[in-house]
Nucleic acid binder design. Structure first.
Length: 432
RNA sequence: GUGGCCGUAGCUCAAUGGUAGAGCUCCAGAUUGUGAUUCUGGCUGUUGCGGGUUCGAGUCCCGUCGGCCACCCCA
């Protein structure tokens, strides 16, 4: 039996990597004052067709439930957000700064970087139309990526402006019903030969290419870039009007993050969607909004291909999984004494393991090593003393069992973790 | 959804149309209480699945499922 196509099993190593990614996301989002929320995994199919049209259903993981309801696994979180905000916006002071880590689904043929299921960090700011909100969101995107150990030569956030293109189309007297099509051609222009794009754009080709090659020409985007420079983040950002994004609802600044190598799909993407909440709530609530999303799959691929990020992940996984103490029971007569001490150590917050059944001493030390224990404590003929062995240095110390806790607390490699687990906080958040 | 390439042990891969193998991993042991290396032994296969051609198919053909890549689409 295999998992369904496009779905993943998370073995302990994978789960640790996933936890690491989630931890970084939560940590940075909270640094920016965002609070976490979530919604249902399953929604009425209408919620998505209302926003994107009936064709979207071919991409949805949808079915009819036992109550004859047409339902779909969420492909994205924004429609749910719009619904929740429309229903509850009066309960919160503006602007809302919300983030979430939903698992999202899509019924598509899987490929590298695109599965049928993924986890997608979302951050949205609701109820703020100032350009400072756009800057804040882009800064968050940059810092999220920096938190994984990526530098300015690993990724870039390319920033553009839908409104700039809308103005362009107005001045060129392009009828409104053609806007979406033209924008999609521009969005695609980077990935196909110029001549092909030129044919599609017709008379618009010449002025459009002039803009694309000019890299700028927007006073608004210049202000965005200046504001990011003040924060010291200019190296991570580029103005690029070739970024349009496929979704129709974006209305202002839009941006996408890419690996510098250009080998992978977009790491993140988003922008301003001032009209979407009104549209999805049938005009009941109208609030300016902006947000972006970052998926775990492409991010994981880039971590794997970037040495600094890969090492950071490896350290985090070891920190999450490694034991503090392995108890070696050399004489079965001491098992009861050992278990009493194991309980006391675990109460103190240490991570402690031991062999559930009688095993040779050599085997027990080998297991201690493999589980990444810092210290092994041997219970045997020495009782009421025990042998405390620091595995890395292979140094051994004979300690009275009554003094064991105090001795362990004096070991620098162990005390920090025990203290931390007493207090609070996610495992492995070492860099705070 | 369309097209191309691929599918052999848990993993990485061998095997001219002629008896399915290696390395790694895993498990057990190498004179009774200390991790590495080494040595010995052991487990794992309907060669993705189903048909066909052939005296004989892992190998050739068809179908199907799965994977990778491109297109489509884009969270």
């Amino acid at each position: 039996m295999q998992p369904l196509p496009g779905f993943r099993d998370f073995l302990p190593q994978d789960c640790a990597a996933r936890n690491y990614i989630f931890d970084r996301w939560r940590e940075v989002a909270r640094r920016y004052g965002f609070v976490e929320w979530d919604g249902p995994v399953l929604e009425p199919t209408d919620l998505y067709t209302k926003k994107s049209g009936a064709e979207i259903v071919t991409q949805l993981f949808n079915f009819t439930d036992k109550g004859e309801r047409e339902v779909a696994m969420r492909p994205e979180l924004t429609p749910t957000l719009a619904r929740v905000v429309a229903a509850h916006e009066r309960e919160f002071k503006k602007p809302l700064k919300w983030f979430s880590i939903p698992q999202c689904f899509r019924y598509e043929k899987q490929q590298r970087g695109r599965l049928r299921e993924h986890f997608q960090f979302n951050a949205d700011i609701i109820g703020e139309d100032s350009l400072d909100a756009d800057v804040e969101l882009i800064a968050l995107c940059v810092d999220l990526l920096r938190a994984f150990g990526f530098a300015a030569n690993d990724f870039v956030v390319r920033v553009s402006d839908r409104e700039f293109w809308i103005d362009f189309l107005r001045t060129q007297n392009v009828p409104e019903e053609n806007w979406q099509e033209i924008l999609q051609i521009i969005d695609r222009s980077e990935r196909e030969p110029r001549e092909k794009t030129a044919v599609k754009l017709g008379p618009l080709a010449e002025p459009a290419f002039k803009i694309l090659d000019g890299k700028g020409g927007s006073e608004k985007l210049d202000r965005v870039l200046a504001a990011l420079r003040v924060r010291g983040l200019a190296d991570f950002v580029e103005i690029d009007l070739g970024i349009v994004r496929g979704l129709a609802y974006y209305s202002g600044v839009v941006f996408e993050a890419f690996d510098r190598g250009g080998k992978l799909r977009a790491l993140a993407g988003g922008g301003r969607y001032d009209n979407l909440i009104a549209q999805l709530s049938d005009g009941a609530v109208s609030l300016p909004a902006l947000g972006f999303a970052m998926g775990d799959v492409v991010l994981g691929e880039l971590i794997g291909e970037t040495q600094a990020a890969r090492e950071k992940l490896g350290t985090a996984i070891a920190t999450e999984q490694n034991l503090d103490i392995y108890i070696v029971i050399a004489k079965e007569e001491r098992r009861a004494d050992a278990l009493a001490k194991i309980q006391a150590l675990r109460d103190r917050g240490y991570r402690v393991d031991y062999s559930l059944t009688a095993a040779k001493v050599g085997k027990q030390f080998q297991t201690a090593e493999q589980l990444g224990a810092r210290v092994a404590i041997l219970f045997g003929d020495e009782w009421p003393q025990v042998r405390v062995k620091t595995l890395a240095s292979r140094e051994e110390q004979l300690i009275g069992n009554e003094e064991m806790l105090a001795y362990l607390a004096s070991l620098p490699s162990l005390s920090s973790r025990a203290e931390r687990s007493d207090v609070e906080g996610p495992r492995g958040s070492t860099d705070r």
